[in-house]
Amino acid sequence: MPALSILELGRVREGSTRADALNEARRLAQHAEALGYKRFWVAEHHNMPAVTTAATSLVVSHIAAGTRTIRVGAGGIMLPNHAPYIIAEQFGTLEALYPGRIDLGLGRAPGTDQLTLRALRVHPEEAERFPQDVIELQMWLGPLREGQRIEAVPGSNSNVPIWILGSSLFGAELAAELGLPYGFASHFAPQALDAALALYRSRFKPNTKMARPYALIGVNIIAAETDAEAKYLATSQQMSFANLVRGVRGLMQPPIDDIDTYWTPEEKARAAAMLDVAIIGSPDTVRRGLDKLLARTNADELMIVSDMYDPDKRRRSIEIIAEVMKVAA
């Protein structure tokens, strides 16, 4: 059976603070660790009031400091926003502090809008350098070479595992060419999922670190004791996606009884397209959904997004998912 991991955005709920969101993220990681989850990743996004993971390396450290065994990392760092040398220093420092537990997923998108991109002092064309920047970052994180005059300290020889993340065929092809593990963002952009996995697996080039392709996929799962409760809890995430379609940036809202009173048919259709890879329901429903998804993708690992308003319900959701997978195994 595939490994289970969690993707975290540090959602700020209505009626809570940003500090609450960051501390709830750490509590969720601690709970996931106790349940046997493999990784806990946080994603870089900017200028989003409900998302507190913009300073990604700091959030990784906050979570790693509160856990002992679970791997913690970035899912991902949007590399065009940063100099590879700086990321090598940051994640080399994390590896020095939490040895053997740090992952570095890399994305090509900006993780924000064009106006905020200017505030980051980043030119849009920087994304065209992504393949070269990945190779440069590998060099900074690898062993020192003879005559090398610039060293990432910490960073050099840390060999922090690098992943390529994406939602298109570009990332799949790059991951295959470089012989790196690949994560597909099917939790919000699932349209190219099957084609990307096929491309990655067919073109993968083995190397001394990876003999075979390794594919992780994002999946939205809202699990509860009954289908009705899960559908109710899922409305918070559905409203967030409806707001994304509207261009409205707000905090996570409490669930509502009838989501169709919130969104228009057009908004529903557009949000549904983004949430196509989603499983919502009781343990039995979740089990059937996972069986179908795994038969379709043969994924090596599932990166769970279980966004909901109530932290206790969210912790229960990842409990149910872990229980379902153990039964399936």
Rank of each mutant, 00 (worst) to 15 (best):
P2S: 11
L4H: 08
S5M: 01
L9D: 06
R11L: 14
R13P: 03
S16R: 13
S16C: 01
D20Q: 09
L22D: 08
E24Q: 15
E24K: 00
R27V: 09
A29L: 10
Q30M: 15
H31V: 08
L35M: 11
R39I: 02
E44A: 08
H45L: 06
M48Y: 12
T52F: 03
A54D: 07
A55D: 06
V59Y: 05
V60D: 06
S61F: 04
I63S: 02
A64C: 07
G66K: 10
I70T: 06
I77V: 15
P80D: 11
P80K: 09
H82G: 04
I86G: 01
I86C: 05
G92V: 02
T93P: 01
T93V: 10
T93C: 11
E95I: 13
G100H: 04
I102N: 03
L106M: 04
D113Y: 12
T116Q: 08
T116S: 14
T116K: 01
T116P: 00
T116C: 10
L117F: 01
R118Q: 13
A119W: 06
H123I: 09
P124V: 06
P124C: 08
E126I: 01
F130M: 03
V134K: 00
E136I: 05
L137R: 14
Q138G: 11
M139S: 15
L144M: 12
L144Q: 15
R145M: 10
G147I: 05
G155F: 07
S158G: 03
S158N: 10
V160A: 08
W163H: 08
I164A: 06
G166M: 03
S168N: 05
F170N: 14
G171Y: 01
A172L: 03
A175D: 02
L178C: 03
L180V: 04
A189S: 11
Q191C: 00
L193N: 00
L197G: 01
L199C: 08
P206T: 10
A211N: 12
Y214E: 14
L216I: 12
I217N: 00
A224T: 00
D227F: 07
T235H: 05
Q238D: 12
M239G: 05
S240G: 09
A242G: 15
R249S: 14
G250F: 01
M252A: 13
P254D: 02
D258L: 12
D258V: 11
I259W: 08
T261W: 01
W263G: 11
P265M: 12
P265V: 14
E266C: 06
V277K: 11
V277Y: 12
A278T: 13
P283H: 10
R288G: 02
K292L: 09
A295T: 14
T297F: 07
L302A: 04
M303L: 15
S306A: 14
D307A: 13
M308R: 13
Y309N: 04
D310I: 09
D312H: 11
S317A: 14
I320D: 01
E323D: 15
K326E: 14
A328F: 00
